[in-house]
Design a protein around this nucleic acid. Structure first.
Lengths: 204, 204
DNA sequence: GATGAACTGAACTGGTCGGTTTATTCATGA
DNA sequence: TCATGAATAAACCGACCAGTTCAGTTCATC
């Protein structure tokens, strides 16, 4: 594991990254202190600095590895074999479930906050998260199975619209810490209404 | 002007806030130093601290005043008197125009970033921005004029969907610093497609 | 031109931070 | 048993930062 670790071996690499992830996601880049990270990781500062040249490198390593991980939750093949309306509903549900998770919200907050100071970060996050989702759904929309039921000229536009409808106002409220708990019924309702609107627009 | 200034009078109040706005929006809360703010505002640090008890108070003052300001760009009455499809298009255009502005994006970034550390901030931003837009459009959807042409059972849900469709992927790309310039044609296209989908769903 | 409040600039305090160094401990394996 | 290299704790450095203080300057008003 960690075949492409940055230049150094050592058994505590994962510990360092885990501690850094925890602190960075909670405190942001400027808010997190290296001492706190080392303490949280159960590692000495010297050890930490033997793995990473500076705080920025550690930050980027954590976030990009985190971004890589997020796109793993792909659409299962079993979803795609359902009839189109049911498949759309399942996709909306699973997408929303991920988006509303505390973890996803924290990563999003930090990436948005620091994307001005770390230009690479915003891009890395976008390409490994939102972009992936867009691509997957667009290619699903372009598939024969879907095109039998729907008329979609521009699959990317349609995918964008579909995902945008999923991200309802409640996601923004959660991101802004206005409303932290969201009921399952609310999520189901958004998914239902998303599919309803989408079918109204694209059904053959 | 500034009838409800915080406890102190003084001629340089606006200067201080203006400088603080500039620096906070560019650097975030932790990233901005008080010395830099004072320098940018053309004011001594002592003067700054005679207006505001500490850095946090200054930060909140800047952001909340900024939030108040953002909802001033209401829908003009002339828009609402257009036929419904044209009105929807105009609303989408003006909403998108504001959302895509550098200023709006900067405020959003900072509010998202600090909403975990400043719980009041996220709420203040939400209520004075997104919430206002939602309310305005929902009440428009509930109006007789609209209900003649469209069947909208839940105006808030519909308003949420409409605004969500406007916030297309390109907004996320701008927020994440992936793509800073967006063409007018792209904006127009999103507005057009938003109205198209919305009418397909709700047209009587 | 005198008065007083607002403002200035610069120095200062106490503290934190990122990063380095050093002396020491611990584990492994030959 | 000893050597090697990884890990540690703690002290340390220079820089920066929030906030205070104060002697002196500006400015509006009378």
């Amino acid at each position: 594991m960690n075949i492409n670790a940055p230049l150094k071996k050592g058994r505590k690499y994962d510990q360092v990254v885990a501690g850094a992830r925890e602190v960075f996601l909670k405190e942001g880049f400027e808010g997190a202190s290296v001492d706190q990270i080392a303490r949280d990781a159960g590692v000495s500062k010297a050890t930490l600095y033997s793995y990473f040249p500076d705080k920025q490198a550690l930050f980027m390593a954590v976030l990009t590895s985190q971004c890589m991980q997020q796109s793993d939750e792909a659409m299962g093949i079993e979803i795609l074999q359902q009839p189109v309306p049911e498949a759309l509903y399942s996709i909306a549900r699973s997408f929303l479930g991920y988006l509303m998770s505390d973890f996803s919200v924290q990563v999003f907050r930090v990436c948005v906050a620091e994307s001005a100071r770390f230009p690479d970060l915003g891009r890395a996050f976008y390409e490994s998260g939102p972009q992936q989702a867009l691509d997957q759904i667009a290619s699903y929309f372009a598939s024969e199975k879907v095109q039998q039921d729907l008329t979609i000229d521009d699959p990317y536009l349609a995918a964008d619209q579909f995902l945008q409808l999923c991200r309802a106002d409640m996601l923004l409220r959660k991101i802004l810490n206005v409303e932290t708990d969201v009921s399952d019924e609310a999520i189901e309702r958004i998914a239902r209404e998303t599919v309803k609107m989408f079918l109204a627009r694209y059904r053959r």
